[in-house]
C-alpha cells in the first residue's frame, strides 16, 4: 500500500517539470491510435472476458456492472 502511494506521488511530482506543449505540437497525441482505447468495443468486450475468467478487474472508470459469468 505504501509503495503504491509513493508511486502515485512520484507521478504527480514528475508533472511539475513538464513544459506546456504548443497547440501545433499536439498532432501526434491527437491521432486515433494514441487514444487510451482506440477501439472501445474491442476493449469493453475483452475486459468483460478477463473479468469473468480472472480474479482481477478494475480500471479508471466508474462504469460497468457485474455478470453471472460461468
Amino acid at each position: 500500500m505504501k509503495l503504491l502511494f509513493l508511486f502515485v506521488t512520484a507521478l504527480l511530482l514528475s508533472a511539475c517539470a513538464v513544459e506546456p506543449l504548443q497547440a501545433w505540437d499536439r498532432g501526434y497525441l491527437a491521432r486515433p491510435e494514441m487514444a487510451w482505447d482506440p477501439d472501445s468495443l474491442s476493449a469493453s468486450q475483452r475486459n468483460h472476458v478477463y473479468f469473468s475468467k480472472e480474479a482481477s478487474s478494475g480500471a479508471a472508470s466508474a462504469g460497468g456492472g457485474g455478470c453471472g459469468c460461468n
Binding site: L11, V18, L29, W36, A60, S61
Partner: peptide
Amino acid sequence: STTAFVAVAQVLNANTVVQGSLS
C-alpha cells in the same frame, strides 16, 4: 459493489502521454 477512482494523465512531450490511476 462501489468503486472510487482517481486518475492523473500527463502529457510528457509531443509524442508521449502517461496516465496513472488508483481505484
